[in-house]
Design a protein around this nucleic acid. Structure first.
Lengths: 225, 225
DNA sequence: CCTCGCGCTTACCATCTGGTAAGGAGCCGC
DNA sequence: GCGGCTCCTTACCAGATGGTAAGCGCGAGG
């Protein structure tokens, strides 16, 4: 095979990671062969092994890259959303936009959750737990001020919101297929996501707070690339 | 291998289905070999092929059995929960108990959702849609009477509740690992499920209705086997 | 100009996979 | 008693899979 000179300039290792992430997300680790990855990248099978010692190493690398990306992005997102009281209610929207922009990553994480519960359990207990606690503390402050429902379990709440975002995005295309188009021509996916946001907000904010938060609407809807 | 006379009396086909469901749920379809199934049942590999023409047929049969079971059980459960206004708020609890009693089935459905989105999309559009509409109509009635939040999207709400129950149970063991034991020695799993129930209720019922529904608590907590 | 090493190739291999062929043990109706 | 049927076995197979061996092209450094 004659190497395409142009494509060779971009980092081959990262191209392989991106392709592997997409294929693992779509067909699962066991449902994806090294040949599939090699073909999709446009190289031979041993070329993949050359960069990642084994298929298992490729999986680990793809998962690491994914978690690294999240660890870099999510905290910034969450801290920004909890920095001022006013912006906290947009947390779900931000989270959903984040995962929505890369559904493959949501699907891959969900698959890892199913395929390797023990290892992912350690990840949960280690990496995400501190962030869970930090946001939960914010929710608790809101409870003390009467802004959040007093009977909520802050940590469990945040955990569910996170899992909702992942699971909802991972299965959005399938589940939204059971919905009709909305009254104003709204797409099923839009209805699906809007109701998810409403549910997470309504289950946290007390009524008075909810109407207050809903009023100053017009916030910038930055499109994430 | 000498056949165990006792075990042979129970229906071999159903034993295979049960084992396949468990293994597919745990390791996925591609992560499970016919040999795995045969070993777990205690027969030879061609014995599995004898009952199910192919591995694919085994998957289809396992999924069919699962969906049949749900189609027989869930409607009864849901109709009972929506028959009288008072009992509707226990719907989530019932749903959760239902899936909780067979987490393997929840996991298998989640995997199918990821592995074969197109086929599952047809299932959603076909089999579950009527039930979705029926329960959504109930939610709408509640909206007209001011019992349910007026800004809720009934169909999307019910869809999310269903997906919450499936996703939450499928990943419960992993996610609950990020939680501590509750104040009164409550297990992380219990906290996890209780908060899920609270969230789904709080996001549907209006405040006045919520307190009213919470009061006559003491309902029978039948244990499902 | 040479050679050294990186990134990739082709050729190959042991193992495993889903599936087939053929036959044997027990049981049923006759 | 016996053919035939059901359920299951052992023996086997072609293809795919993850991974290895060896070598080739080519750019960098001496």
């Amino acid at each position: 095979m004659v190497p395409a000179r142009l494509a060779e300039l971009v980092d081959m290792r990262q191209r392989m990671l991106a392709v592997a992430t997409r294929l693992f997300a779509a067909h699962g680790f066991d449902g994806t062969t090294l040949q599939d990855v090699a073909d999709a990248v446009g190289v031979s099978k041993p070329a993949v092994i050359h960069h990642f010692a084994s298929k298992e190493a490729l999986r680990a690398a793809a998962l690491d890259a994914l978690l690294d990306h999240w660890k870099q992005t999510l905290p910034r997102l969450l801290l920004a959303a909890t920095a001022t009281d006013d912006r906290f209610d947009s947390l779900i929207g931000e989270l959903l936009r984040f995962f929505s922009s890369e559904p493959d990553r949501a699907r891959l994480v969900l698959r890892e959750l199913l395929d390797r519960p023990y290892e992912m359990g350690r990840v949960m207990g280690g990496a995400v737990r501190p962030w869970l606690a930090a946001i939960a503390a914010y929710v608790e402050r809101g409870q003390e001020r009467g802004r959040h429902h007093a009977d909520a379990d802050p940590e469990a709440y945040v955990l569910h919101v996170l899992s909702f975002a992942i699971a909802a995005i991972a299965s959005r295309d399938v589940l939204a297929g059971a919905l009709d188009r909305g009254p104003r021509g709204e797409s099923p996916e839009a209805r699906y996501e809007r109701e998810l946001v409403r549910m997470t907000r309504a289950s946290l904010f007390t009524p008075a707070e909810r109407t207050r938060a809903a009023r100053p609407a017009r916030r910038k809807t930055r499109r994430r690339r």
